[in-house]
Amino acid sequence: MATLSLRQLTKTYEKTEVLHGIDLSIEDGEFVVFVGPSGCGKSTTLRLIAGLEEATSGDIEIAGRVVNNLEPKERDIAMVFQNYAIYPHMTVRKNIGFGLRTAKMSRADKEARIDEVAAILDMTELLSRKPSQLSGGQRQRVAIGRAMVRDPAVFLFDEPLSNLDAQLRTQMRLEIKKLHQRVGNTIVFVTHDQVEAMTMADRIVIMKDGHIQQVGTPDEVYHAPANTFVAQFIGAPSMNMLQGVGAEGGISLPSGIQFRGPLAPNGVPLVLGVRPDDLHLDDGEPLVEGQVAVREPLGHETLIYVTTQGGEIIAKADGRRPPDVGETVRLRARPDRVHIFDAATGQAIR
């Protein structure tokens, strides 16, 4: 187990800088998830930590020592790859034991360690099989087993669940989380799936265009997004964004509605963000008003797409009695559930 620090980390490919000075500290035993859209630099950051790419500038520190100039094998890390990277010509036992080839251990100790890891991952029965005889989930467990067997200071996971079907992904998510609780190693996990990030992480690092947008617990990034990007990236369906202007005691919306509540700078263009979960059908003073254009029944609730003067808004309605398509609805939100962003910078105002 170990801490991990990134200090002013940059990476340039030819003339293009893809990481622009990443600063991050990860605590010992923490489960940190890097999340962001494709090309945001999350996998590059992971590869820099692993030593598979060389940092252009900045420092990477694992367990208190700068590892920039160390080979991957000297960094005391293990990595699980997106497409598992388990060797098709080796049995599960050989695959799991592969990481111990260079370890200074007796053969008996190595075998015992493989058996121990296989038992943790519930794979003892599969040790003599070849990867082609395994299911996707089992292959993923072999890949995790190969990483575990060396008991590294830091585990790196590069989108390991993206090749699995939805059901298996949910199951593996839970297994990895349980595994972390059991072994307690520091884990850096990369994904583009915000649900994976929210469900697994102690802290989430949200990235965009080579910059960290926000670092926080799942609660923090969901309930107090640092900017409009985080607000819209985290949560499904995305947060609704309404253009407005700061007014006396609230925000003035283009529809003419004065939203009272949050204090906003007078006359400044703002963006008002509200999650679909926080919008309710209510006959009282509305935040927005419009016609239901589309309904998406999900069983216990129905998503309604409402056409308003400020654009399309998504809200959630009762699954048993949703409004009809074409019906005019008034949607209300509690002032403390509304997020205010500076329209120019996109940064949260409160």
Binding site: A50, G51, L52, E71, P72, K73, I77, A78, M79, F81, Q82, N83, Y84, A85, Y87, P88, H89, F98, G99, R101, T102, A103, R146, R150
Partner: peptide
């Protein structure tokens, strides 16, 4: 796949070992 090579690199094999143990059998 490059992942095979990189995985072996992380597992501590040198380039000659990777060529012989991982790449050649494939």
């Amino acid at each position: 796949p490059d992942d095979f090579i990189e995985a072996a690199r992380i597992d501590g094999l040198n380039e000659l070992q990777i060529w012989w143990t991982v790449a050649m059998p494939l």
